[in-house]
Structure formats: structure tokens, C-alpha cells
Design a protein around this nucleic acid. Sequence first.
DNA 1: TAGTTTCAAGAACGGCGTTTCGAAACACTG
DNA 2: CAGTGTTTCGAAACGCCGTTCTTGAAACTA
Lengths: 201, 201
Amino acid sequence: MPRPKTRDDALKDQVLTESISLLESGGAIAVTARRVASDAGTSTAAVYELFGDKAGLVRSIFFEGFARLAAELAVVAPSDDAHADLMSVFDTTRRFALRSPMLFEVMFARPFTEFEPGPKDFEAATQIYSEVIRRVAAVLDTSETDPTTVDAAHALVALDRGLIAAELSGTLGRSSESVERRRNTALTAIIDGLCTAQDRS
Amino acid sequence: MPRPKTRDDALKDQVLTESISLLESGGAIAVTARRVASDAGTSTAAVYELFGDKAGLVRSIFFEGFARLAAELAVVAPSDDAHADLMSVFDTTRRFALRSPMLFEVMFARPFTEFEPGPKDFEAATQIYSEVIRRVAAVLDTSETDPTTVDAAHALVALDRGLIAAELSGTLGRSSESVERRRNTALTAIIDGLCTAQDRS
DNA sequence: TAGTTTCAAGAACGGCGTTTCGAAACACTG
DNA sequence: CAGTGTTTCGAAACGCCGTTCTTGAAACTA
């Protein structure tokens, strides 16, 4: 007997898509409930029914970012060169960050005062770690469950995150050559160091 | 003939101090013009005359953070152990971040939508780089102006920043042992790798 | 004391996140 | 076909934010 619902999953997806467009085009400051609702052709009340609150909307953006990055990482086919396969993870992540800097910042910085990701939220990043762990194990020739492998993966992810953050803020270097050279220096050095540490044990 | 100003540098310092207290106790969401003014015993108009706008207030917090960190780094006396001196920079930075996590986030994350640091703002970080460069040069036995030294310093700063960000968000590990082990693994590996790269050339 | 000039702060404005509430839209009954 | 009941929708309203303005007080000169 009731009137039909229009605030369904399809609308939720549309609101989310519009929010990300708004984020990329105008930064975090442009993502307001009114503008998001207007761009998606609905009302603010709909946004609040679908996402709970503004933090819920940003959390969905956060998850969508990890889903997109994971999808891109999964596409990269493994080759017979374990070292190149590992580097390609960081290259892919970097290109993702340069293509969608605002979305990347939602994932790894904190441009919305309303949303501070908690431990539960960061479980979304687990699938990305697993991709790194698999390739680290191949390079080090260790088991994927070996603490050495996991520790190395954390080291690499932390470094890549720091490098990308520095590049996005413009502090890694002025020219693209210096940026790339420093990325290469850092990643090569840590992989080399992790390998020798493994060889010694 | 005028009445004396009360909105002077002393009040500005007090407002800044109260802002940082408010930030550390209640997070970025607690730092509002009204609360800052109230806690400092003045009005919002005074805050705006002193800092221009909210972004100006946050920028001052940003600079104060770098000033405090630089002061702590300068205190650490150089010893005859170059390697230990380098590691102490990262230990000091880490302890600073754990002691003042919100202030650290203002410096390296972006918890205020109002303030996005630009290239000009990041020059405040230069003094911190110079401290790292000096100690990297000692470890690698290179000149402080050698590109190799500068590249290595950027690599190390990026890694430390990534490690601290991961630790603050709780993704580096559950127990403090695993966190410290991973920090040590990462920093040791990259320094080792940077040294061998330098030895080869 | 009167006049003049500067300053301080409370009130006001638009926009934000969020909630409320009356109207609208459907299915079913008589 | 009109009426009823139930559910959904969205315009408007609320409080708080950053920011600005207006009003009135304060301090100095003459």
C-alpha cells in the first residue's frame, strides 16, 4: 500500500558516484550534503537515510577507493620476474594516486574532519596487503605466513605510502626526474636491504 | 590618543596555545573560533584580526608543530656513532608523534578541511630535512650537497612518515612488539640498502 | 570636562550537518 | 469510483560553524 521507494541501492550508488566526482573536481570542501543531493537529483534527507550521516558518506567513499585500487592491483598479471611484479604494485598504486589524488587522500590522509577511520575501517585495506604479501613472499622466497614476509610487506607499504604522500604534497622533488629517481632509490634500497636481511638468516 | 591594543602578539601566542590544547584534547572538531576565543578569554573577532581566518589559525598550528619538532631534534647531541645518530632522529620524531598525535596529524595529514598546506607552507619542514641530511651524510660518508645524500634523506623521511602514519592509525601492528619490530626491520633495511648502493658506486 | 579617535565584543549573516513534519503516492476496501 | 490507511518523500527548520559588522566603550588631547 505504500508509495514506492526511490531511496534504494541504485540511488545510493548514484549518490556515491556523484560524491566522488564532486570530491575530485572541487576537493573535500565541495562535498556537502546539499550539493551531493542536488547533483544526484534527490534531497538531503535521502542522503541521510542512505548513509546515516556525513561520516557514513565519507566512509563509503573510503571503501570505494580501496575497492577501486584493489581492482587495479588484481588486474596486473604475475610474470616470471618476482622483483618486477612487486614493483608493479607500487607503480600501480602510485598511478592510482596521481589519477585520483583526492580519493587517495580520503584513503590515506584525513581531509574530512567528520570521518576518522578506525581499526574496523582499515580492514578494507587488508586485501591490498595480501596482494603485497604474495609478491613479497615470491621475492624473498619465503612463506606468505612467515612473520618476515609480513614485516617486509608492512615496511614496503609504509614506504610507498610515505613516498606518494610526499609526491602529492610536492615535497619529494621539483622535477619529475628527481621524484622518480628518489622513488627508485628508496624502493630499490629497501628491497635490497630486506633481501640481504633474509639471506643472512 | 587611541586606547591601547589588547590584540597583540602576546594574545596571539595565547590563542595559539589554547588552540593546540583544544586540538590535543578534543581533536580537530573541537577547534572552533568560538571555543578558541572563549578559552583564550577573548572574542572571535580578535581571532580573526590576529590570524586572518580559520586557515590562518591552523597554519600557525602547523608551523608551531614544526618548530617544536625541530627544537626536539636539535637537542639530540651528535655522538661518535653516526648510525645511532641517524636512528635517533626517527626515534625522536616518533616519540613526538605519539606524544602529540593531533599536532603531528596537522603537520603530516590534513585533518582540517579549511587548511591545505601549499609549497610555501612546507618550507617550514626544510629545517627538519637539513637535520636528517646532516646525519645521512655522516652515515654514507658523502657530502651534504651530494644528490645521493639528499635522495637518501628523502627516502628515509618518507619511510618514517609512512611508518608513523601506520602506527598512529593502528595498522602497523597490534602489539607494541610487532610495531617496534616492523619499524626496526624497515629502517634497518633501507639504511642497509642505501649504504650498499653507495658502496657500489 | 568635552571632543575625538581607536578598539573590543556581541549580534547578525549565510551555509553547513541534521531532523522534522506535512504532503504525496500507492494498495486496498466498500 | 471515492475513501482509507500506510509508507515514503522533500521542503523547511534548528543549531552550530566561519565570518563580518555595528554599536558602544575606552583612552588620550586640549
